[in-house]
Amino acid sequence: MPVNPLVNPLVVRACAVWVELARVPVSFAPPGGVTVVVSPRSGLCPVGWVGVVALGGSAVVTAPSEAAALVVRAALGALPVEAVVDGVSVREVLPVAQVLGPAALAYVSRSGFRPVEAAGALGVERLSAAHPDVRGLERAAGPEDAGEAALDEMTSPVFAVRDGRGRVIAAAGYEAWPGRAAHVGVLTAPEARGRGLARVTGSAAVAHALGAGLLPQWRARPPASRRVAAALGFEELGAQLSIELA
């Protein structure tokens, strides 16, 4: 995972996003370093949890209190950077109640983007995030997948594909994040998966974000989602982990 931020501008921009989300003054250390700070309002994790983001071979960690920071600093400071975003390794050194992740963090530049066009009679249309047909797709996909995609939180248009009966079967968009990032979400109806529709709709969302001068971010755990990101030219530069201490 180590990537020298001095030679990869994507790492520099990605680090700026998470530094702003930390909501306290912090910076990523040189490769190999783990920086732990106290931030009760951190955007790296749920409130009251410990948030870990590793990028470019170093990591930033936010803790909800000074007492938690002392424990986390002692435990994670002894681990290599790759291990601080590994749930198994973290459980070996910290009293953990729950873990969310790890999720891979991937980014793409304008020059690295590989767009995918709709094939055949398929067309991509723009809908609002509140459109009832988008809600219908979420119901079809189920609460877990719909929650992961979070189409209802999109600040961009939602780029959608319909089937022959007019139902939205795939959609993607992005939420504008601090640091001029575009957090991309993609959702496909279960019966329509495996047809490349996530690439088509995701490509439209990424193109829109790049056109607005934003940094597209793809955060994912499932291998299928990570493969979609890779097909569009995203580079996996790090990972995110959230920890609830016991």
Rank of each mutant, 00 (worst) to 15 (best):
M1E: 14
V11N: 07
V19K: 04
E20K: 14
L21F: 01
A22H: 06
R23M: 06
P30W: 01
P31F: 06
G33C: 06
V34F: 03
V36A: 13
V38Q: 12
V38N: 08
V47T: 15
W49V: 08
A54C: 13
G57V: 05
V61Y: 01
A67T: 11
A68Q: 09
V85P: 03
V85F: 03
V85I: 10
V96N: 09
L105Y: 08
S109G: 14
R114G: 01
G120S: 15
L127W: 04
A129F: 06
A130N: 04
A130K: 08
D145H: 13
D145Q: 13
E148V: 13
A149R: 06
P157Q: 02
G166E: 04
A171I: 11
A171G: 11
V186R: 06
V186P: 01
A189L: 06
G194M: 09
G194Y: 09
R195V: 01
L197V: 12
G202D: 07
S203G: 12
S203K: 10
A204P: 10
A207F: 00
G213N: 13
L214W: 11
L214C: 12
P223C: 02
A224D: 15
A230P: 00
E236G: 13
L237M: 10
S242G: 14
I243A: 02
I243W: 04
E244W: 10
